[in-house]
Design a protein around this nucleic acid. Structure first.
Lengths: 335, 335
DNA sequence: CAACTACTCACAAACGTTTGCAGATAGCCT
DNA sequence: AGGCTATCTGCAAACGTTTGTGAGTAGTTG
């Protein structure tokens, strides 16, 4: 930058201001500076700028993991929106571990990120490690998996609506004994999906039966085990709504292993619209989560928070509407 | 840091040196500093440090995309190794677009990364955008998809060996007319896989037939189309080795659509060991790519380069050995 | 003509570290 | 005692920006 200033016979101040389009620099000067900057291939040192203003153009993201479809897609949305706003994204995985989540947050703070976007680890039940973030006045946005019982800025899917829709669909297809593969209930998403399931039953005038709800960590193996248990019940089930696609995949495999026809004997519907839902046989009905939109929304929210100088106490919430993708695993018509 | 110094009645110099374990600081002083630092919850400002020494603790990664299994797993490996060495990772996607890849590299340089790890976009055939990285003396490591005909630091899978192994396996199972679904040949990985296929044929004394090699972008749809074409040939194929799992999935679907038995009539083997290979029916034989190892190796290489002050011209190469996962899609025994 | 506005620019002090150099203390040898 | 080394510590100058303050010039107004 000093070179630029010397070459043009102006001060560094002017150069700096010209580059950042400050109002107090003449249009002519700006042009000259910009042109020379390009010519000399000037590369601004973001660190110095960040140091000076105490804020970088980095956006920190913490997710439980990046396999499957959901988180990569969300990150995709985040990156897109972020780069549009001139931010770079730095991604950390908590591997479903609070401990690591804490470390990740530290790392991000040390990297002087301008904002932090988080989707909680499965076993995070305590949220003090985020106080530091707020304490430094850094915008904090949760998405998908958000802290229970806390007022936070968040972007979530309307899990309740998705579950309601999926379950209603099964019931509309004629199912009468619909089971539910439920996830850990301390996570908002799984709690809401369960409630959606229950409310759908209620809407159809069917009494809920706790024996038909299976709680697990929702792995494929969990789903298969649950299905086997459900099949052993005296009163047969004729439909299963799973709070995750992996579990439903397990159920599918268990059913096929016993030669039970899908969807004729048992209809299936899952949640997440994972890639593999389109390659199982039959293909799986599932609730799509608007992944990219969620990422974009999270960034938008961050930008708003960053713009409002030390925002008020009011925390903002964004709720996205899911969409049910109906496939053969739940279509009674073509058993 | 000033607080620490004042509190302890020493200079900032001492504090800085104590924290970075400099040899000229007494053990007692170090202890005192460290203890107070913990007590006051001192958070070093990495930006300032980075600015001063012209180097951050950030590692930049550019990948084509982060869906599927391969890249997330590699990133996983990178993160693990990097965080062990005290580095944070910042991930960018090129979306298979040189243009974006170029921008990503710029972004990373502006973020003052300490190193750059790259897997090329599909259409990158020209590599000048990496000159800047080298120009600044920043370690540059390519992995998996590396520049053709350039001397670079790289970590790759032995794709040739993997393809050789997979094809040999098909031949050993009794296949005699084995087709190959090939990817874009300007990418090292696909070129090597094709060569491995050819060499396996040669080893079994089978003459290659260009009509049995299908070139495409390896999507599921491409694979299905290729399979349909192969089935229409006068002389039937009895095995297919695909340079990617998605394409083989397409082939699988096309075969089943025509009621052809797998592996009895046609055996299949793919590449990447994607997650879905275990849920198709029959499950798909595939070559595993040692994803995490690749990430770790890339970071190790980076660290070595960073340690060697302005390394010599010799570029280092790391080659990992793949592993064939045999599943039902290629086991003639249990047709 | 004086006073005011609008515009343009430069000085220099930050931001929070690291580090070359030099100063200080103590112990040891001759 | 003097000189040496070894060990420890502080001063102050960097690193490359941003920005508050103030000064200068021109144009406009009363």
């Amino acid at each position: 930058m000093a070179d630029l200033a010397r070459e043009l016979g102006v001060s560094m101040t002017t150069v700096s201001r010209a580059l950042s389009d400050h109002h107090s620099i003449g249009a002519a000067t700006k042009q000259r500076v910009l042109k020379l900057a390009k010519k000399l291939n000037y590369q601004p040192n973001h660190m110095a700028a960040a140091l000076r203003r105490g804020q970088s153009r980095l956006l920190g993201v913490v997710v439980p993991y990046i396999e499957g479809k959901f988180f990569p897609s969300v990150i995709q949305g985040i990156e897109q929106a972020a780069s549009k706003a001139g931010f770079s994204v730095i991604v950390c995985q908590s591997h479903e571990d609070v401990q690591l989540e804490r470390r990740n947050v530290e790392t991000l703070l040390n990297a002087q990120v301008a904002g932090v976007l988080v989707s909680l680890a499965r076993n995070t039940q305590e949220f003090h490690h985020f106080d530091k973030v707020r304490g430094r006045g850094i915008p904090l946005v949760f998405f998908d998996r958000i802290p229970a019982g806390e007022q936070v800025n968040s972007v979530v899917l309307d899990d309740h609506a998705g579950a309601l829709q999926a379950t209603s669909h099964l019931l509309a297809q004629g199912c009468r004994r619909v089971a539910h593969l439920a996830g850990p209930q301390h996570l908002n998403i799984y709690r809401h999906r369960r409630q959606g399931y229950l409310d759908a039953l209620a809407a159809f005038g069917i009494a809920p039966d706790e024996a038909l709800i299976d709680y697990s960590d929702m792995t494929t193996e969990d789903g298969a085990a649950a299905m086997r248990r459900l099949l052993a019940l005296p009163n047969p089930v004729d439909g299963v709504f799973g709070a995750g696609d992996s579990a439903i995949l397990g159920a599918l495999q268990a059913l096929k292993a016993q030669g039970i026809s899908i969807p004729r004997d048992v209809a299936l519907a899952g949640f997440s619209n994972e890639g593999f839902t389109a390659i199982t046989e039959p293909r799986l009905t599932s609730v799509d989560q608007r992944c990219e939109e969620m990422g974009e929304a999270a960034v938008r929210l961050f930008l708003e928070l960053a713009a409002a100088p030390h925002a008020p106490f009011a925390q903002r919430q964004v709720v996205l509407q899911p969409e049910l993708f109906v496939r053969e695993s739940s279509l009674q018509g073509q058993a």
